[in-house]
Amino acid sequence: MVNAIKRTIVCFGDSNTWGYDAKTDQRFNDEIRWTGLLHAELGDAYRVIEEGLPGRTSVSDDPLFEGLAGIAYLYPCLMSHAPLDLVVIMLGTNDTKERFALTSYNIAQGIVRLAHKARGSGAGPAGKAPEVLVIAPPPIGAEYLNTPIGKPMGSNCSEKSMELSQHLAALLSGTDIHFIDSREYVSMNEIDYMHLDIQGHRNMADLVKYHVKRILE
């Protein structure tokens, strides 16, 4: 008996893909993380690979921490998991940090650069282009400034994250890259205002599942 070939999805993101729990400063377990929920609900016909890294940016090298620029890791990441049917990219939250001095448009440009690199990676079946889905993350709440994360993040992060989705939508319009704005369906927690809580992971899983079905089936 020949086993059916599974559809493979790589979820490439930051701490909201890794599953950071702001309440405990630990990681949510598989049953709570949106990637784990997605895998459970898609079933055995799919393989969902988590590639979340706390602090990850799209293209910026962080002067305080090494290895966080997504652009440097994306190609080897995708090729190591190939062949892939879909690459889901959700980044931008960390790019708003004041020390990177990026505008919201610059952040969108970096994410779009990643998306095109994924599309042209040859990591799809038979060396073809995998499908790519870019998700604009939920905006950072303005209250983040009054939490312990406020000082490391710096100022104007919520404003930039609020503007990000409109720039992504405009830059990806007319391309062969899929895009969704999560803000209407998912919100950040009320602890540090920049991470998903349990309900946020549930909502994100539902949103991504719908679009996975739309794209791959």
Rank of each mutant, 00 (worst) to 15 (best):
S173D: 15
G70T: 01
M1Y: 13
A22V: 04
V132A: 12
I149M: 15
A22C: 10
H116I: 07
K151N: 09
L86C: 04
S15K: 02
L42D: 13
H178G: 01
L78H: 11
E50C: 05
A142F: 10
D85R: 08
D62E: 06
I198C: 10
L91N: 03
P63N: 04
E51R: 08
H195R: 07
N203D: 15
I140G: 02
R119A: 15
P138I: 06
L78T: 05
R47I: 09
G127D: 08
R202G: 00
D44F: 05
Y144M: 10
G174S: 09
E51W: 00
I191W: 01
T17R: 02
D61V: 13
A123G: 12
P148S: 09
V134Y: 09
H195T: 05
A45E: 15
A45G: 15
N156Q: 12
M162R: 14
R202T: 13
P138T: 10
P137C: 06
N16I: 03
M79R: 15
L53C: 11
S80F: 05
R56V: 03
F65T: 13
A72D: 14
P76E: 06
V132K: 08
M188F: 00
G124R: 04
L216A: 08
G150N: 06
L133P: 07
G124K: 07
L38W: 05
H178W: 15
G154L: 03
S182E: 12
N3W: 01
E31I: 10
P148T: 07
G70F: 00
W34M: 14
S121R: 05
A40K: 15
E66D: 15
R33E: 14
C77Y: 00
S155T: 13
S104H: 01
M194H: 06
C157H: 04
S158T: 00
D62S: 07
D61K: 12
R33A: 12
V212W: 11
A129I: 00
